[in-house]
Design a protein around this nucleic acid. Structure first.
Length: 254
DNA sequence: ATGGCTTCTTATAGAAGA
């Protein structure tokens, strides 16, 4: 069982790459963020023709999330019922008995931006909701773009990033609060190469110089964490022409 | 460095991303 998260930075632009990637990576579940498409523009037919079920919720220009699955999708939930939000950042569904939650956490922009407290309250509400979902669904996976680098190991240059958005103590505390629910950062269950990241700036040769951060995560509840045999970042599509600035993160379960 | 790149917009310069 392979569960994947990938921020595609516009599904309109990246659909050919997503389909190409799926051809060589026939995964069970792919959670996508930043589709940037209203539902009427979502490429449902193309995705279904590739052999995937799909659930999605989107808006114009920003945000937008989707779950693609080889298996049937039921109990679709759009957005956090505990958090009034015009922004389409969450979609959840039940697949093969697992509760799959696909999340695009707000970026926050900067610590002095009005988007930063929105990010923190959004994360607090996410924690509340995930806690209740875990009560209903022991097998839960929370996949997405968290816009949080949990640890200094997850940042190419921690000194340069100190005091910045994505690494601030309140953001890291919000990430830890999710782990404290009993979720496991599947990536850290295993020995990993140093300086493994999931996002690299388009500018300044960010990818070539590996100036990245690890902000895309697959969190697993205990029954799923026990079955997890690996979690890796696939850097391959980041090398393609006109790539997303994020790479897919793949968790494999027995 | 108010930088650098990419995507989007009832576009054609500015916002947002991270």
């Amino acid at each position: 069982m392979k569960l994947v998260t990938w921020n595609v930075n516009s599904l309109k632009v990246r659909l050919p790459q997503v389909l190409q990637w799926l051809e060589t990576n026939p995964v069970d579940v792919l959670c996508i963020q930043e589709t940037k498409l209203t539902d009427d523009k979502f490429p449902q037919a193309e995705i279904e023709a590739a052999g995937y079920h799909v659930a999605f919720t989107g808006q114009k220009t920003y945000n937008g999330v989707a779950i693609l699955s080889r298996h049937a999708i039921t109990e679709v939930q759009k957005n956090n019922p505990l958090f009034e939000d015009e922004q389409q950042r969450i979609i959840a569904a039940t697949i093969e008995g697992m509760r799959i939650v696909c999340a695009y956490v707000p970026n926050g922009q900067a610590l002095d931006s009005e988007k930063y407290p929105y990010k923190l309250s959004w994360l607090a509400a996410l924690r509340e909701w995930i806690e209740s979902e875990m009560g209903k669904y022991p097998e839960l996976a929370l996949l997405g773009d968290y816009n949080i680098a949990p640890d200094d190991r997850d940042v190419h240059d921690p000194a340069a990033w100190e005091g910045m958005n994505l690494v601030s103590p309140p953001e890291r505390a919000a990430f830890q609060a999710l782990l404290d629910l009993g979720l496991s950062d599947s990536f850290r269950q295993f020995e990993q190469p140093e300086k493994t990241f999931s996002w690299w700036d388009y500018r300044q040769l960010g990818f070539r110089l590996n100036k990245g951060v690890r902000i895309d995560h697959v969190l697993l509840s205990a029954p799923l964490a026990k079955r997890c045999t690996s979690c890796v970042v696939d850097r391959v599509p980041r090398k393609w022409e006109q790539p997303s600035d994020h790479a897919p993160v793949i968790a494999t379960l027995d």
